[in-house]
Design a protein around this nucleic acid. Sequence first.
RNA 1: GCUUCUGUGGCUCAAUGGCAGAGCAGCUCAUUCGUAAUGAGCAGGUUGUCAGUUCGAUUCUGACCAGAAGCUCCA
Length: 646
Amino acid sequence: MLKVELKGGVIKEFDSGISALEIAKSLGSGLFKAACACRINGELCDLRTLINEDCALEILTFEDEDGKKAFWHTSSHILAQAVKRLYPAAKLTIGPAVASGFYYDFDSEISFTNDILEKIEAEMKKIVKEELPIERFSLPADEASELMKSKGETYKVELIAEHAGKSEDISFYKQGEFTELCAGPHIPDTGRVKALKLTACTGAYWRGDANNKMLQRIYGISFVKQAELDAHLEMLEEAKKRDHNKLGRELEFFTTSEVIGQGLPIILPKGARVIQLLQRFVEDEEQKRGWLLTKTPYMGKSDIFKISGHWDHYRDGMFVLGDPESDEAMALRPMTCPFQYQAYLNRSRSYRDLPLRYNETSTLFRNEASGEMHGLIRVRQFTISEGHLICTPEQLEKEFEGCLNLAIMMLKTVGLYEDVSYRFSKWDPEDREKYIGTPEQWDEAQGVMQRILDDLRLDYKVGVGEAAFYGPKLDIQIKNVWGKEDTLITIQIDQMLAEKFGMEYTDTDGAKKNPYIIHRTSIGCYERTLALLIEKYAGAFPLWLAPEQVRVVPISDKHHDYAVAVLEKLESFGFRASLDDRSEKLGYKLREAQLEKIPYMLVVGDKEAEEGTVSVRKRSVGDVGVLKVEEFISQKLADVASKVID
RNA sequence: GCUUCUGUGGCUCAAUGGCAGAGCAGCUCAUUCGUAAUGAGCAGGUUGUCAGUUCGAUUCUGACCAGAAGCUCCA
């Protein structure tokens, strides 16, 4: 007999050699039916794992993150089985669970159109109905390789060859006629995947390398119950309505033009207003914190980019003007760094000058590949709240913290703070092509950043190979409405470019030294930030950021003069206000103002004109009662000043 | 750049190898109205662009342009 500690510290006895699944069964049929995987002494395991000694056991269901992963992973096997039944020539590669569902990559001559996807989905549902038990077995690497060779699964053979060196057996999962190389864990049988849907077919490179063959990736999602699938699909419909690329165009924040080109959005008056408000806020706040504004050229000779390393490392991403081989070649700047360094180099510097903080509202140009552009998130010309901070090694930690605090303050003010996560982006020592500097330099820079992040007790994940070519980064990440993650803000430590540019300072001991440089942005790129704010607020911006804050709506033409008086008063206090004096019914005008997501509508009629009041309609609430014009103004001025979000 | 898909008035969507249609928005007129759509009329399109097939192409084919999802890349 062995003792198994279950959830809540309960200890039960079982015969040695019992499987986790059998234990789940003994605990109740509900748990048995819901079980997806388990954790034995904290380690994620397959339910088929036999238990031979005392342990702590946790049964994982679809409600647990890892249980869900196992469920989706099995769903991807069902997908692969269905494809092999319908298209035996398709070759298997890999098919994991992802953040929201699963995918499987196939190498197939036939392209999987939407019609084919429907057929595959129908076949998957058959496999679910068949309730095939899923069995696990393992083979030594050479036998595993033979098995996959006999089935013509060349990609699997490749994967096994990589594992062979580890002298571990290779595990397989078998459901009916379908056998798949896989580490697991998997759920007990195919019958549990009650609700599933294939959502897309796209291309994906084998092993994520653009030099390899492009495979066909089928995405899907599955749930335990149909109702959950329906709710998920409805949630996606809702997300679509908030998508900045749709809503931002509908609400006229931006547009694009075929004759201007890809990745070059036209920011319309409403979008431009929001960006202006953000920019003023950023520049004022930075000034308070000791940043010195520069304005540097949008282009430069190739010389400057040769010194910085961009010419070698980044040329494909730059817009080069003139023959790239000639000495006269110019390029639009993809970064601000080397330009602000020239400001530092304007005269000789001493430790007394440091830290030196340069900021700039900087427009950059990057020749992104044609498939990369997306709304306002990825564009070819963008404007960033840029800054470079030059300091001594002793000042680095405090200054880094200052940059981070500024970014956090910005995020809190615009209301995005709750939505971000941190990524410590390191270099990839295996990919020396991509980076300048020596391993020693990288170890040092990354060590410094690691120490700072740990001192700040920041909760971050590590991104290997995500560093800039000259140094490690702290990236502040955010997800869009579709759950896709992007970098909003980045703070980087650089100890290489100062040397390249000959930037020095005279220290207290009279010695010339290279300073550290922090590259940072405080609120990110205005286009991208605008996109995320549109999605965050579904276009209904907080009062201080709203392109139009107040609309005065007279009930009839009779009230025009009073409405104009109210409007002028609002404008004299700096409100962005307008007057809807069309001869339409009140309901019609309010409907339009609501759809335009204007925070406040002020209805004025006989009563208001007589009493010097306004009837206040709040976008999010409806009619909130009558106020004296002065009262409304003083209340809302206070809201704007404190940048309230409600 | 790669894979798959899409492109019909400002927007949402019909239709067809043989004269391209509706709603909303726009304009005009009437209506002067109390918290999310007043009525009538008018105007608006070389069906993304350029070729090809055809007696005839918006429809079929190709290239290009733009858009979407994903991959790769990246702020």
